[in-house]
Nucleic acid binder design. Structure first.
Lengths: 200, 200
DNA sequence: AAATGATTTAACCAAATGGTTAAATTTTGA
DNA sequence: TCAAAATTTAACCATTTGGTTAAATCATTT
């Protein structure tokens, strides 16, 4: 592992654990086992180092699920597939949601918001939604509110992970199991919401 | 408004906007239009001032909805009432969710997690759930996962508010309207999830 | 091997930070 | 009224912060 890689690994850890304001350049240097001046040699400033990390991490969190979703026929199946795939990522990187949320909530910083690659999923989502709506395959819900709901149901427990662990007294492993079980529960909710009522 | 109140008001603003690490005692003093030494005179330290603010704000976010919920008969109605009431608070204090989430995610800090008053709602929720489940009034879902889902659907948009505003190009007022509309949509989702399928 | 460029180190710096102190001012109560 | 207590101020402090610099070391190329 070369110096640059060591820095990135250490910076990831520290920024994710402590947030931008809480992170200390010295601590990043210590964890990377390099001189603090090296941080600036490779990345010029704290801000630029953070940006590098953020970009890399966002790529992990917003992967090419969109592409894969195309292979599913109906809207409901697409959404269920999204949940399934997204949870594999979330379970692997449970700290990512808070990292992203705390970054986009940083005062006066629309810069990072613009880096979120939402376009890819928007198209497929809405196109598929209206297609299935017209053919009566799904119930008439507000697509925007529905999307936010699916995201919220999915991501929320990862944002409250420390509280959940403490309040119901579980460790990381048990949390992981709980989230694994959650996948089917969420898919079920989605089906119940989207499946039209039988007017026989 | 006396000095202590001025400090609290200013501290609220700054801690909520900037987070604990980002907040500066000098900025709090400036906004309160008092000398920085006064902060320490009244609250000893940054940590203690923050604790004061957190406690006050948590009281606002976790109010006596629990009590009021008792007056609703069925589980479904209780949940819908909760959403309705909770949204009135969220719309009024849209920045609170991020404030609480970022506090409980602070490294090695179970202290604040323990301050979250969840007990009040837990009892009513589970008792009512199992009661209605037995009498066949609701579908058999996992009560824990369901609770997290309702919370997630409700709170999530307030955590992503800056991103939502930017991405779909709306201002605070429009966001508020969107959230007002969201109430009925969420209540609808809850009913669709909980209403048992008719096996005629 | 010598020169060149890339990498690393240690010492350093100015600014900002949370916090303190002692004196000055205002408020209170006997 | 006047002394004691509470409040406010300005100056100060030690430490930490992100960042710099110049010299030293290492790698590469001719």
């Amino acid at each position: 592992m070369n110096t640059e890689e060591k820095i990135i690994k250490a910076a990831e850890e520290v920024f994710i654990e402590q947030g931008y304001d809480g992170a200390r350049m010295q601590e990043i240097a210590d964890r990377a086992e390099i001189n603090k001046a090296m941080l600036h040699y490779y990345f010029r400033s704290k801000e630029m180092l953070f940006e590098k990390i953020f970009e890399e991490k966002v790529k992990v969190l917003f992967p090419t699920i969109g592409e894969q979703m195309k292979s599913y026929e109906g809207f409901t199946d697409k959404v269920c597939f999204f949940i399934e795939q997204y949870y594999q990522i979330l379970i692997k990187y449970p700290f990512m949601p808070f990292f992203v949320i705390s970054t986009i909530n940083r005062k006066d910083d629309k810069h990072f918001i613009k880096k979120l690659p939402f376009g890819f999923i928007k198209e497929i989502f809405f196109e598929s939604f209206f297609s299935d709506l017209q053919s009566g395959k799904i119930r008439e819900v507000n697509p925007f509110q529905f999307a936010v709901s699916v995201m919220g149901m999915s991501i929320f427990p990862f944002l409250t992970r420390p509280a959940m662990k403490e309040l119901i007294g579980i460790n990381d492993e048990q949390f992981q199991i709980l989230m694994q079980q959650r996948i089917d529960e969420l898919k079920n909710y989605v089906r119940l919401i989207l499946t039209p009522t039988n007017h026989a």
